[in-house]
C-alpha cells in the first residue's frame, strides 16, 4: 500500500488539467475540428517515475488514425519538454459515442457532420427497421434519409437531407 501512496503523490506532481489543455491541440486527422480530448479517446495520463504515460483508446478497432494520433501526442509532449513519453492503448471498457464531449458535438455540427444522437433510437435487431432520425447539420431539418450504413470512415454513415438536398456524414451512434 505504501507503494501505491507514493505513486499517488508522484502523479499529483503533474498537472493533469494543464496537460489535457495541451492535448486539445492535437486534432483527429480525419476530423480536424475535433481534438483528441473532444473525441473522448484520452483515457488517462500517468507519471511513472520519469516517464509520462498517455493511455488512449480507439473508436473502432481498425481506425487507421490511431498510430498517427499516438505519434502526434508524443511530438506535442516532446516539444513541451517531456522526454520520455509512452502512449499505450486500452480497449476496455470500449469507447462509445457518449465519450464525445458536448463541445465536440457542437464542433462536429458546425463542421457539417451530424453528431451522434444522444441515444440510439433504433437499437433493436429487427431488419430493415426505420432509419434513425438524424438532423441535417446545415438546415436543421429532421426530414432526412440514410443513403448508406457506411461512410467515408468507419465511424460515419451517409445521409441526405430531403429539404436542402445536401448529402452529409452522420457520426454513427456506437
Amino acid at each position: 500500500m505504501v507503494g501505491s501512496e507514493e505513486k499517488e503523490m508522484k502523479t499529483s506532481v503533474i498537472d493533469k488539467k494543464a496537460l489535457y489543455a495541451y492535448l486539445e491541440e492535437i486534432k483527429d486527422p480525419e476530423i480536424p475540428v475535433l481534438s483528441v480530448v473532444d473525441m473522448g479517446i484520452i483515457r488517462d495520463i500517468k507519471l511513472n517515475d520519469d516517464e509520462l504515460e498517455v493511455i488512449i483508446t480507439s473508436t473502432y478497432t481498425g481506425c487507421p488514425a490511431m498510430d498517427m494520433i499516438a505519434a502526434n501526442i508524443r511530438v506535442e509532449l516532446a516539444t513541451l519538454g517531456f522526454q520520455k513519453v509512452k502512449v499505450t492503448q486500452s480497449i476496455s471498457p470500449p469507447w462509445t459515442t457518449d465519450w464525445i464531449s458536448e463541445d465536440g458535438k457542437r464542433k462536429l455540427k458546425e463542421y457539417g457532420i451530424a453528431p451522434p444522437n444522444p441515444k440510439q433510437q433504433v437499437c433493436n435487431d429487427k431488419l430493415f427497421a426505420a432509419d434513425e432520425a438524424v438532423q441535417c447539420p446545415r438546415c436543421n431539418s429532421w426530414h432526412t434519409h440514410r443513403i448508406s450504413e457506411f461512410g467515408s470512415t468507419a465511424c460515419k454513415a451517409l445521409y441526405q437531407c430531403n429539404d436542402c438536398k445536401e448529402p452529409f456524414d452522420y457520426f454513427k451512434c456506437h
Partner: peptide, 20 residues
C-alpha cells in the same frame, strides 16, 4: 459505390480486430 464502401469498411473492422 455505397456497397463498395460498405464491404471495405467491414474489411477495415475485421483487420482492426485481427491486429488487436
Amino acid at each position: 459505390l455505397e456497397q463498395d464502401i460498405a464491404i471495405t469498411n467491414i474489411s477495415l473492422d475485421l483487420i482492426g480486430q485481427a491486429r488487436s
